Amino acid sequence: MNIDEFVSICGDSYGITVDDVSMTFGQMSEDNPFRTILLRNIYGIEKFEYHMALVSSSYILFFSRESCDVTVHFKP
């Protein structure tokens, strides 16, 4: 995984902080279930032209690279 690249691209816009076990998005509300994600739950990080994606076993989070906007896709 390339967490460093993800943080360098999206870190300022989303207020990302990373520690040894989790990634937290400071721009998300406190009650958002995706505000803090355990690093062990991230299967991959994909870079697209206008988005960055965090891939988990049950969902994919798409982070806009142009504005502070997150879209969630739940896997069937």
Rank of each mutant, 00 (worst) to 15 (best):
I60S: 09
R65T: 08
G26H: 09
S22V: 14
L39V: 05
L39I: 11
F74M: 15
L61E: 06
V55E: 08
M23P: 01
Y50A: 09
P33I: 06
L38E: 10
V55R: 07
I3K: 02
Y59N: 12
N41W: 07
R35F: 02
C10W: 05
Y59D: 09
S56H: 05
I3N: 04
V18G: 08
N41A: 11
I60C: 01
M23T: 13
E49M: 11
T71I: 06
K75P: 02
S29P: 01
Y50T: 12
R35D: 04
S58E: 14
Y59A: 15
Y50H: 01
A53P: 00
K47L: 06
M52S: 14
M28H: 05
P33E: 14
Q27G: 13
M1C: 15
H73C: 01
I9W: 04
R40N: 10
D4N: 03
L61S: 05
D12G: 10
N2Y: 10
A53R: 00
G26N: 09
K47G: 00
Y50M: 01
K47N: 03
S67F: 05
C68V: 12
V72E: 12
S8E: 15
L39G: 04
Y50S: 06
D20F: 03
C68M: 11
M52Q: 11
F34A: 14
S56P: 01
D4S: 05
Q27W: 10
D4Q: 13
L61Y: 00
Y14G: 02
M1I: 12
I37P: 00
N32G: 10
D31C: 04
S13G: 07
F34S: 10
L54D: 01
Q27Y: 10
D69H: 11
S67E: 07
D19F: 05
V55K: 11
F63Y: 00
V72N: 13
